[in-house]
Amino acid sequence: MTDLHVVALVSVGAHPTSGRPRRAEQDARAVELGLRLAGEQLQVVHAGDVADEALRAYLGMGLPRLTVLEQPPRADALPALVEHLANSPAQLVLTGSQAETGEGSGMLPYLLAERLGWPLVVGLADIESVENGQALVLQALPRGQRRRLRVRLPFLASVDNGAPAARQSAFGPARRGQLQAQESAPAVDPLLSVATLQPARLRPKRLKVVSAGSAAERMRAATRKATGGGGQTLEGVSPQAAAEAIFNVLLDEGVLR
């Protein structure tokens, strides 16, 4: 596992109550996983402003350096990251699920995986082993469940709060570590250049009306696993038929047009 090339992608976060810049919670967890896997060999990459002091919080986790692909404010980070990763020996790319600032759409891991043509594991909780070009990983599912997956390298994984908590950021390493700027072609985000950002509003949630008599029933209702309701399990069908069924669902849901 020592010569495994691991890259963690980080962004600048914002504290939920004060809004001050900080290391992003999920990205820091990605760095934590990467440090456990690759130690100081871990490459950490940020697309943005090299002068952003909040990036030093990542260095404080014990990184000697952090690569910054220089981008103007409100630029699209995707093209620069794709270019950087495609030209690097990276085998495993870790990233948070959703940024705390900017658009925060959570789309970056998906778009990145699509452009690179790599598989994507969402909700990575742990990496158990990497052997013979394959990784054995644990994926976090709701309610503390874990799913063990075998993934071939290279792949991309996004972490959420199911991953181990990030270690403390210390002042000494943060001060000593280097932010290394790397020039990259600025990518204008056509949407962001005209639109304005405003804080997302929580969507109203449909109340779950529980018409249960006993306390035990209400308890069961409150803790019941959320299920999709519809859906169908395909068993013993040919791959062709299965793919067709999935394709039809995606068409129905409007994912594919």
Binding site: Q168, A170, G172
Partner: peptide, 8 residues
């Protein structure tokens, strides 16, 4: 321990 090791 805090400033160098991050071990509070």
């Amino acid at each position: 321990l805090t400033l160098e090791k991050g071990a509070t």
